[in-house]
């Protein structure tokens, strides 16, 4: 039982990280951005290519991959989403563009690396360290630690630095922010960098623990979106809580039900939340009401 909880915890940390990035970008752009998945797989596979083909040390490869991922996110915002935003496109159009990007990158990865699962680990599969009667592998511990570190770093940045405060102000009211002279385009670009960096950190770490497949971007996206919905859209830490919640639900659910229903359980929970508590745990409800 405690192993199940531990597994849930690890999975949850991964989803929490992914959700954190998605939530951050969402709070400033207000549309469901599938291109996050594109960044996710690109950084994981870049790390793979650097380790296996360029034979760079694994830590260095991961760092470079995170940088590449962050830049890719920024580039997408600059080239695609900013153009659409300036043209007054609706959220739906932006969503469509974002999944166009995901499709392109997912298949590009498939063409270059093939569909077989790729292993980022160097060395053999390790058994995992035994702590408090629970087994966790080194990558898994790393995932959990990273989620804590990133969350803490995010808190310091958003609440203690001036740049962070500007971002939060823009998130709560973009129109008012512009009135006050804040360059919202630039803030959005920053947020894309940061959110994509978080996504890349999550993807290289999770890639270290499990294997890389072209579908991993879509998977991460689905779980991250679920985390944001359950945790609450518009809150910074809600998605992290949502991520942990999903991790637990998944692993406890699978304890009792066959493993193939793992994803379906998560989606059923998401739909339940949407119907009974659409704002999630900590979010502000989106309403389509009158002025």
């Amino acid at each position: 039982m405690s192993q199940v909880l531990a597994n849930g915890f690890v999975a949850g940390s991964g989803y929490a990280l992914v959700g954190l990035g998605i939530g951050l970008i969402w709070s400033l752009t207000r549309f469901l951005n599938f291109s996050y998945g594109a960044v996710y797989i690109t950084s994981a596979y870049v790390a793979y290519a650097l380790v296996k083909w360029a034979h760079l040390p694994i830590i260095l490869s991961m760092c470079i991959a995170v940088l590449v991922g962050a830049c890719l996110g920024g580039l997408m915002e600059f080239a695609v989403f900013r153009t659409l935003r300036r043209a007054g496109s609706s959220q739906f159009i932006m969503f469509v563009a974002s999944f166009g990007l995901l499709i392109c990158f997912q298949n590009l990865v498939s063409v270059v690396f093939g569909d077989r699962p790729r292993i980022l680990r160097t060395g053999n599969v390790q058994e995992g360290i035994l702590m408090l009667s629970v087994r966790m592998t080194k990558p898994q511990i790393l995932i959990f630690l990273s989620s804590v570190v990133v969350a803490f770093g995010m808190w310091i940045f958003l609440f203690k630095t001036k740049a962070g405060k500007i971002i939060r102000a823009t998130a709560s009211d973009p129109f008012l922010a512009r009135v006050h002279g804040i360059n919202t385009d630039r803030e959005i670009l920053y947020v894309f960098f940061i959110g994509s960096a978080v996504a890349s950190i999550a993807s290289v770490l999770i890639g270290l623990d499990t294997d890389l497949t072209p579908a991993m971007g879509l998977n991460a996206l689905m779980m991250g979106t679920a985390a944001v919905v359950i945790g609450g859209m518009g809150s910074i830490y809600g998605p992290m809580l949502g991520g942990f919640f999903i991790g637990f639900v998944q692993h406890i659910g699978v304890w009792k039900l066959p493993t193939q229903w793992r994803d379906a359980i998560v989606f059923a929970v998401v739909i339940l939340f949407l119907v009974f508590r659409p704002q999630g745990f900590f979010g502000k409800p989106l309403k389509s009401t009158d002025i």
């Binding site: 919905v229 994803d263 379906a264 989606f267 059923a268 739909i271 949407l274 659409p278 309403k287």
Partner: peptide, 19 residues
């Protein structure tokens, strides 16, 4: 619900039916 929520719900529905 708000249309973003409906889209996510349809997402969940699609995944559940596929499952």
């Amino acid at each position: 619900l708000h249309e973003d929520y409906f889209m996510i719900a349809s997402f969940g529905f699609q995944m559940i039916v596929f499952n």
